[in-house]
Amino acid sequence: MTDSPIKYAFVLPGVLTMIVIVIFPVGYAIRLSLSSWEISAFGSGMDFAGLTQYVAVLQDTRFWHSLFITFVIVFFAVSLEYIIGLGLALILTVELRGRRFFRVIFLVPMMVTAVIMALVWRTVLHESIGPINDILIRLSLPGIPWLSHNTVALISIILVDFWQWTPFMFIILLAGLLSLPQDPYEAAVIDGASSWQIFRYITFELLYPVSVAVLLIRTIEAFKIMGTIFVLTSGGPGTSTESSSYYIWIRGLKEFQLGYSAALAFTYLIILTIGLIIFSKLLRKRISPRKL
C-alpha cells in the first residue's frame, strides 16, 4: 500500500490547487518584481531588470515612513483590542443579567464589512456634520479635528480599528476563559489569594496560550490595514496615516507600477515575516511544555 501509486492520485487535487492558487501567483509576483513593467510606460513589459526595483524600495522614504505608521497603528490597536477584549470577556464570564444579549451585541462590529464600517465612522467623525463634534459644540466644548490633524487622524484610525476588532479578541478570549479548569481557582480561594492574584497567576497564566494565538492572528491581520484608511483619510493629511498596504495599493493598482509594487509587496512580506517570527518567539518563550 505504501508504494501504491494511488496515494499520489489522492494528493494530486490538493497539490494542483496549491500550485494554481498559491505557488503560481507567488512565483509570478516574484518574477514581476524583477521587471520594470509599468502600464503607463511606453513599450515597457515583463523585462528583466534584476534587483533595481528592490534597490529603489530601499531608497523610498515614503515606504519606510508608511512602515513606521503601520507599526504604530498595529501596536496601539492590537494592544487596546487585547486589553479591552480581555476585560469584556472577564465581565461576561460572571453571572450577569442579560449576559447572552451582550455577548451577541459585542460581536456586531466584527460582522460589518470594513469599508461600510469605515464609511459610517467617516460620517460620525465628520467635523462639520458629524454627531460627535455636534455634541461637543452643544456642550460648549471645541470640536476635534478627527480626520484633518496628523496625530488625531492617526488616533481616529486606531480607534476605528479597535472598535471593529475588539469583538474578535473578546470572543476568542471568552471561549478560552470558559474552558479553563476550575480546580486551580478553588485551591487559590482556599489558600486566601486575592482577586488580583487569582487573575494574575491563574487566569492570565492559563489563558496565555490562547492570548498568544489571538495576538498573532490579529497582528497579522492588522498589518494588512487598508480599507479603513482609504475611506477615512486616504492616507492624509500628507502621508501621516498612510499604511504600507495602502501605499503598495497606490503604486500597484492606482498608478499601475506593476514591477515596483511587486517589489514593495515582497519587501513588506519579508519584513513582516521576520518581525512576526521574532514576535511569536518572544510570546511563546513563556509557554512551558506543561502549559501547552
Binding site: 503607463s40 496628523n150 500628507g238 502621508t239 501621516s240
Partner: peptide, 23 residues
C-alpha cells in the same frame, strides 16, 4: 498626457505634505 495619474498623485502628495506642515 499619458500617465496622468502618476503626475497627479505625485503633486497632490507633495501639496498635501506641505498643507499638513510636514514640508
Amino acid at each position: 498626457i499619458p500617465g496622468n495619474q502618476l503626475y497627479v498623485n505625485a503633486l497632490a502628495t507633495a501639496v498635501s505634505e506641505s498643507l499638513a506642515g510636514n514640508l
